[in-house]
Computed example of a mutant assay.
Amino acid sequence: MSLLTNVMDHSLDDGYAEAAARKKADGDDGLPKTLRAKLGLAVGLVLAALVVTVGAAQARVSAPVVAKEREELIDRIDAETDAADALEDQVDELRADVDARRQEALRDSGGDSSHLVGLLAGSVPVHGPGVRLVVNDAKDAGTGADGDPRGASGFSDTGRVRDRDMQRVINGLWESGAEAISINGQRLTALSAIRAAGDAILVDNKPLVPPYTVLAVGDGPALSDRFQNSADGLYLHALQENYGIRTALSTAEDLRLPAAPRVIVRTAQPITGKGTS
């Protein structure tokens, strides 16, 4: 009976009692480690929420300033665009005035072919029947690493239209009887140059973007037949068959071509007098 009484009176071992007393003396709260971890996580979440709240408040305060700066930038862009458009209109008006004065001066001096000279030189806008030729890269042309068909470097034989391809097309149209030609709205003259700069095709130092729309004024049906049967027309057909370059040729009753931006002659000089030396 004394053994049972001892067990009932001392349910915990003396060692456990000593350990509990020691922890209490050391200031240990006796919480399980998992509970302390949860409390630490809760404190961290509270701090994170506080940081996010402060950041949102600061963003809300600075948002009107950013919006105002954005509106001011948009207003400046619009103003500069309007100014550029106004200057372009002024240039067009001055160019038209110069052309009118030149034609008047030629008429006063006995020149009766000023309009034809301006037409052949590309200095005046023209309209008339002709052909419309659209040349475009192949659908799977030279895809770059980012999936951009224009992303591949260089003009390799991968279905991309090259500068020398456009040179042959334009020369073939001139040879077939075209009287005036433009590419993507840019008038070609005897001084125009078609070349490459990196991955772009340039016409008079202005980059072109595919598809390339070529307008050629002339006798539409005859011009179309002569071009398709010419060496350059067959060359374009071979590009379509071998590399998948897309082309579309059609005739039109009335094509309108703008004047060349500028026709500057730096070297050639007119011959004065009837004789030559």
Rank of each mutant, 00 (worst) to 15 (best):
D29P: 07
G30T: 03
G30Y: 03
L31A: 13
L31Q: 10
P32Y: 13
P32W: 09
P32F: 14
T34E: 08
L35Q: 11
R36F: 01
A37E: 08
K38D: 13
L39R: 15
G40M: 09
G40T: 12
G40R: 08
L41G: 12
L41Y: 06
L41I: 13
A42S: 06
L45I: 07
V46N: 03
V46P: 02
L47C: 14
L47Q: 14
A48Q: 08
A48W: 05
A49K: 05
A49L: 08
L50F: 07
L50Y: 05
V51G: 15
V52G: 04
V54G: 05
G55N: 08
G55Y: 07
A56G: 07
A56I: 02
A57D: 07
A57G: 15
A57I: 05
A57K: 04
Q58C: 13
A59E: 02
A59D: 03
R60V: 01
V61Y: 00
P64C: 00
P64G: 00
V66M: 10
A67Y: 01
K68W: 00
E69T: 00
E71M: 03
E71F: 00
L73H: 00
I74F: 02
I77W: 02
I77V: 14
D78E: 10
E80F: 01
D82R: 09
A84H: 00
A84K: 00
A84V: 01
A84M: 00
D85I: 09
A86E: 05
A86D: 06
A86C: 04
L87H: 04
D89Q: 09
D89V: 07
D89C: 04
V91L: 13
V91Y: 08
E93P: 06
E93Q: 12
E93G: 11
L94W: 07
D97A: 15
D97Y: 12
V98S: 11
V98K: 13
V98L: 12
D99I: 15
D99P: 11
D99E: 14
A100S: 02
